[in-house]
Simulated scan of single mutants.
Amino acid sequence: MKMAKYSRASNGAQRSLLMDKTTGHDMHKLPVLLILATSALLSACSSADFYAMRQENAQDTCRKLPEADRGACLARNSADYDSYKKQREGLLDSSKK
């Protein structure tokens, strides 16, 4: 992709833009578009979704442990999101006192 600097008049003033010679697209817009796309993807996942993914990973790790340790590990990582959230809020409240 060949890049070149071009000047473009905007409201009577000259403005230098980094543009792609082959397509003529303004390359300054690319980081903004990437940030917006990433934000949209991240906002689609809720805290509950992240918790579920983390919990699934932890349970997969538990299943790889020897059988003597596996049960305790699975028990530690079996709470549903609502239980986790209540426990977390209780800990946060007690730490503020």
Rank of each mutant, 00 (worst) to 15 (best):
R15T: 07
K96W: 01
H28G: 08
R88C: 10
N77F: 10
A13W: 07
K21N: 08
S78R: 07
R54E: 10
R15V: 13
S47T: 08
K64N: 08
G90C: 01
G90Y: 01
K86G: 03
L36T: 02
S78N: 15
Y51V: 01
Y84M: 12
S94R: 15
A9W: 09
A58I: 04
A40W: 02
K64F: 10
L36G: 06
M19D: 01
C45Y: 13
L33N: 11
N57K: 11
L33Q: 10
C73P: 01
Q55K: 02
S94L: 09
A52H: 01
D26H: 03
S78I: 04
A4M: 14
D80A: 02
Y81L: 03
K2A: 06
Y51W: 07
L34N: 13
E67W: 10
N57L: 13
D20C: 15
N77Y: 06
A9T: 05
V32R: 08
L42E: 15
S94F: 08
N57F: 01
D20M: 11
R88K: 15
N11E: 09
S16K: 13
M27D: 00
A44C: 14
L74V: 02
L36D: 10
A79Q: 14
D93K: 15
R76D: 02
R88G: 02
S47Q: 15
S43I: 14
L36C: 05
A40L: 12
G90A: 15
C62R: 09
G24R: 09
H25Q: 14
T38H: 12
F50Y: 04
D20Q: 09
E89T: 07
K96C: 05
D49I: 00
A40S: 06
R88P: 03
M53A: 14
K85Y: 02
L42T: 03
A72T: 07
A48C: 11
N57E: 08
A68S: 10
A72P: 00
S39P: 02
L34F: 06
Y81T: 03
T38I: 01
R88V: 05
A13I: 10
S94C: 13
F50R: 06
S16L: 06
V32D: 10
I35C: 04
C73D: 03
A9K: 13
T38C: 11
A52P: 01
L92P: 04
L18S: 00
L92F: 12
K85T: 05
Y84D: 07
I35E: 12
A79D: 13
L74E: 02
S46H: 08
D49K: 06
Q87E: 15
G90D: 11
T38M: 12
Y84H: 09
L34Q: 14
L65C: 05
S7D: 11
T23W: 10
F50V: 03
Q87S: 10
N77S: 09
A58G: 00
C62K: 07
S95C: 03
D20I: 00
G71N: 13
P66V: 10
S7R: 09
A52T: 08
R88N: 05
